[in-house]
């Protein structure tokens, strides 16, 4: 049995963990800074559309960037942690 993950799996895994946290950060920034919200509306016509496009674009760019580096991490743990933190922060921010 092999336990070694391919370099793109590692690179895009790190990227996914970062983008999940960035997604929450962008939500907070656009809610708190009206200029950012206005710019995101101007980008695609709706802040939500821009939000998704920024997230996916960043996921692809960071994925290729991290794939070219030799990084060893436990991807499953990293993604579980970032998902829990990201989602709880979204819920917390909206509830406040």
């Amino acid at each position: 049995m092999n336990t070694q993950l391919d370099k793109y799996t590692l690179g895009f895994g790190i990227s996914a963990a970062i983008v999940i946290l960035f997604n929450t950060f962008l939500m907070i920034v656009k809610e708190e800074i009206p200029l950012v919200h206005t710019m995101m509306v101007a980008l695609s016509g709706h802040h939500w559309t821009s939000h998704g496009l920024i997230d996916v674009t960043l996921f692809i760019i960071l994925g290729f960037l991290f794939s070219s580096r030799n990084i060893k991490v436990n991807i499953s743990s990293l993604i579980i942690t970032s998902t829990i933190v990201g989602v709880l922060l979204i819920i917390g921010m909206v509830a406040m």
């Binding site: 996914a16 996921f59 998902t83 990201g86």
Partner: peptide, 12 residues
Amino acid sequence: HIFFVVLILSLY
């Protein structure tokens, strides 16, 4: 906003 988390995980 949670939808985008699911979208990224699904694309991965």
